[in-house]
Design a protein around this nucleic acid. Structure first.
Lengths: 143, 143
DNA sequence: CTTAGTGCAAAGCTTTTGCAATCCC
DNA sequence: GGGATTGCAAAAGCTTTGCACTAAG
C-alpha cells in the first residue's frame, strides 16, 4: 500500500503552511500512509519505536494534529476510546467491525445529491461529512 | 418537545431486560427525551442537579449506558471530547456546527439502497450506521 | 542565529470502577 | 430480604501542555 503523498509532497504541504519538516513528522506520515488499518496515535507510536527509539507519543499526537490542520490526514471517531487516523482524505465511508474492532474503507459513495439535500434542509454551509457503518466483518462471521 | 417514550414505556423496556426502574433512571431519560440538543452526560447531570440534588454524574453515565444497551438511546460521536446522547434511536443523520458546537438532527435519509451497496461491497453484516455532517449553522453564518 | 519542534513528565478531561449504604421488587 | 443501584471518591485511559534542550531554515 503506497501513501497518498510522497515525502516531497508532504514537505511542501507543511512548508507552505509555515510548519517545519522534521524526521519525526515524515516518519509519522509514512507510517500512516503505508497502512490501511486506520491506526490510533498509540498504534503509530508503537510501530515507529523500533526505527525511532526516541520518538515520543506526544510528538505523534502533535504531528497528527498538524496533518489534519493542513489537510493531509483526517481524524476518525468510530466511538472507541481513542481517535483513529487516515491519510486518505477524500470523503469516503468507514465500516467498523463490532467484534474484532477493525475499520475498513468503503468505496461506495453516497450521491452528491444527498449533501445538497442536507444543505437545503438544514441551511448549514457544509464543510465535511463522515459516514460510519457498523457490523460484523466477514472473518468474524465465520467464528 | 415530547420524549419518544413515556415513563411507563421506559419502565417496561428496562424491566423486560432485567434492569430495575429507579427515579434516577427515569429522570435521566426524561431529561434526554425532552430536549433536541443532543446533550452530553455532563449536560444532563447539570440539568438534573436542581431537581435531584443527590444525583451523581456516575449515575448519569450508568443510566445512559443501560439505555443504549436496551435500545432506547444512542450515543453520538461528532469528534468532540465527549459523547452526546439522543433518545431518538431511529437512524437519522446529524449535523454539527463547527463554530458554535450545536448538533442538529437531519431528517433527509440516505437511500436504503446505499446500505445494501455497502453490504455487497464489504461483506459485513450490517448492524448500524451513523451519518455526520459538518458545517456552519445558519445563525453562525450571520456573524 | 532565531524560532519552532522534540521528548519527557505532569496535568487535564471524560468515563469507569470499587464499595458501603440504600432502594427496588 | 436479596440483589441491584446509588453516590462518592479514586482510578483509568486518552490527549494535551509546560518546559528545557535540540534542530530546522
Amino acid at each position: 500500500m503506497r501513501p497518498p503523498l510522497k515525502p516531497k509532497e508532504v514537505t511542501a504541504r507543511l512548508r507552505e503552511r509555515g510548519f517545519k519538516v522534521t524526521p519525526q513528522r515524515l516518519a509519522v506520515y509514512s507510517a500512516l500512509g503505508h497502512t490501511t488499518v486506520h491506526p490510533s496515535a498509540e498504534n503509530i507510536y508503537q510501530e515507529l519505536l523500533s526505527d525511532y527509539p526516541t520518538m515520543s507519543l506526544a510528538t505523534v499526537y502533535k504531528s497528527l494534529k498538524i496533518f489534519c490542520e493542513v489537510g493531509i490526514a483526517q481524524e476518525l471517531n468510530v466511538g472507541e476510546d481513542s481517535f483513529r487516523y487516515d491519510a486518505r482524505v477524500h470523503p469516503h465511508p468507514h465500516i467498523h467491525c463490532i467484534k474484532c474492532g477493525r475499520v475498513d474503507d468503503v468505496k461506495t459513495l453516497p450521491t452528491e445529491a444527498f449533501s445538497q439535500q442536507v444543505t437545503g434542509e438544514t441551511g448549514y454551509q457544509l464543510t465535511g461529512q463522515q459516514y460510519y457503518f457498523y457490523g460484523i466483518c466477514p472473518a468474524c462471521q465465520e467464528i
